[in-house]
């Protein structure tokens, strides 16, 4: 995997909602998106993944242009080299944990045995090696999140998108997953983006914070900098609640 700089200028409309947002991030950086529900956090991740088309702007990763409406460039999600963890995990219910994790390699034509072996080692790395044969319905929220993370990371993406990775977890599991993510992201060479409603996650994981409101960037800076002078009511409440 080559180290890849992210250059995004995202502009899109979706019904009444409009998103307009520009930012860059260096390879290895973790960027946190914060803001109230409806501010555009999930929309931003979906646009980066290619699940929603841009109307204007551009998206580049390294030397590669993934999307540029002006010259009709638009790579489909399949060709973007992204790993996405969806809110609620969205694991495939009919596949075992190991086959969920192996899915991206199988889609790339890796032989089943080899894909499963690599999936096993990713499950081990995320401390759920013993659950390889389980179906998603037999996993707890924290276990499912680990499997989803392994599934997203196994293809060594240049962009890792984590949509509310802590949603629905109890306090203890939340802290465990945060610590696991901290270690995992430290080794991750691409750009990681995550959304959270808890400022402790932001402080523990992010190098930079993008504060969103009504689909636009309200503030940008390091966790310490935005915490010192929160520009929005929502961020102030998040900082106070930490």
């Amino acid at each position: 995997m080559s180290a890849s700089h992210l250059d995004a200028e995202l502009s899109l409309r979706r019904g009444d909602f409009g998103l307009s947002l520009a930012f860059t991030a260096d390879a290895g950086a973790t960027v946190a998106l914060v803001g109230p529900n409806g501010a555009g956090k999930s929309t931003t991740l979906a646009a980066l993944a290619g699940l929603l088309p841009l109307t204007e702007g551009h998206l580049r990763v390294g030397a590669r242009t993934l999307e540029a409406p002006a010259d009709a460039t638009r790579e489909p999600p399949q060709a973007r080299d992204v790993g996405m963890c969806f809110q609620g995990q969205a694991l495939f219910g009919h596949l075992s944990a190991v086959d969920n994790v192996a899915y991206g390699l199988r889609a790339r034509g890796v032989a089943r045995t080899q894909a499963r072996a690599m999936a096993h080692s990713w499950l081990e790395r995320l401390e759920v090696g013993g659950l390889a044969a389980r179906r998603p319905a037999q996993l707890s929220g924290g276990q499912a999140q680990r499997v989803a993370l392994a599934r997203a990371l196994i293809t060594a993406p240049s962009l890792l998108l984590l949509d509310e990775p802590f949603a629905g977890l109890d306090a203890r599991t939340h802290a465990e997953i945060r610590e696991l993510l901290r270690r995992t992201l430290a080794e991750f060479e691409g750009v990681a983006l995550l959304t959270s409603h808890d400022f402790r996650d932001v402080e523990a994981l992010a190098d930079e914070v993008l504060v969103l409101e009504h689909g636009a960037l309200a503030q940008r800076g390091s966790p310490a900098a935005v915490a010192a002078e929160p520009a929005t009511e929502h961020l102030r409440a998040m900082v106070d609640a930490r």
Partner: peptide
């Protein structure tokens, strides 16, 4: 859940592959 097919797409699966390995089994 539309996210199942979206997840498969971000993982690199073609539309036919998504149909056979995610949509129909689900």
């Amino acid at each position: 859940d539309p996210r199942l097919e979206q997840a498969a797409a971000t993982l690199g699966a073609s539309e036919w592959r998504i149909l056979w390995t995610v949509t129909l089994p689900t």
